[in-house]
Amino acid sequence: MSSVPVPVPVPAPPPRPGRGGPLLSLRGISKSFGAVAALTDVSLDVAAGQVLALVGDNGAGKSTLVKVLSGVHPPDFGTIVFGSRTVTVPSPAAARQLGIATVFQDLALCENLNVVENLYLGRELRGLRLDDVTMEVTSRALLDELSATIPSVRLPVAALSGGQRQTVAIARSLLGDPKVIILDEPTAALGVAQTAEVLNLIERLRERGLGVIMVSHSMAEVKAVADTVAVLRLGRNNGVFDASDATASELVAAITGATDNVVSRRAGRPAAVPPETAVPPPPAGADPDRSPRS
């Protein structure tokens, strides 16, 4: 990469369409693994009813940031303000307790169990004589609220499509009544129709007044559902954009750190794909076996 990096470390502007002040604020978050600085002085704000897209190239620190927020890796430095309190997130359980739910890319569903059992896994009602009636009623109501297209909550998860599984995973994270929900590449392994289904779902999460942090690689999706786009590059903030104003090429420039990059050169070629659909290749971490199941 011979071109000049774009120096746009902008301080995070107040979130635009959010209701009230930020619900979750990160200030100066740093995290190193040995000699590798995965995150350096990262700041981020998300408000209730706001969809924040977190974008960046492979190795930009998106996953590390998600893990910091979900309590998998506590940060080395920096503060996390949740609501109006400064908090620490030492463990996944602590994150859930605070009201930060994370849906990881691999969903972590048990295929041999049905939808209700998966939703309530590890927190079944009445442990010594399961209250499956209440669990089934609540599950059905929750999925209906999300307008999920799941035929029966008593089907094993193995019988569901990729989009339906994503819905189940998101619904499960909602059971704890979180304030902020983090979706790690929710559409990475999905087909066209299923992607649309999940994007609708994200909009309904916003309508419920949740703060949504969505990690994504697809500029089209980011533009479609996000309110704000935060770009990470090499473990640092590299700009916060308003999703309705920013163009895809601006975002790509911020992601790659160059106005002249492989994506823009491709876009400039005759008969090249329009920039709106110019999507970086899927992440190296995406497991090719995790294609949508039939």
Partner: peptide, 24 residues
């Protein structure tokens, strides 16, 4: 079939990582 522990056993056998993430 009727206790939380039983469901945990099926979950561990089905997908141990998912069970761990669910707090089991």
């Amino acid at each position: 079939t009727r206790t939380r522990f039983g469901k945990a056993m099926y979950a561990v056998g089905g997908n141990a990582e998912a069970a761990r993430r669910a707090g089991i």
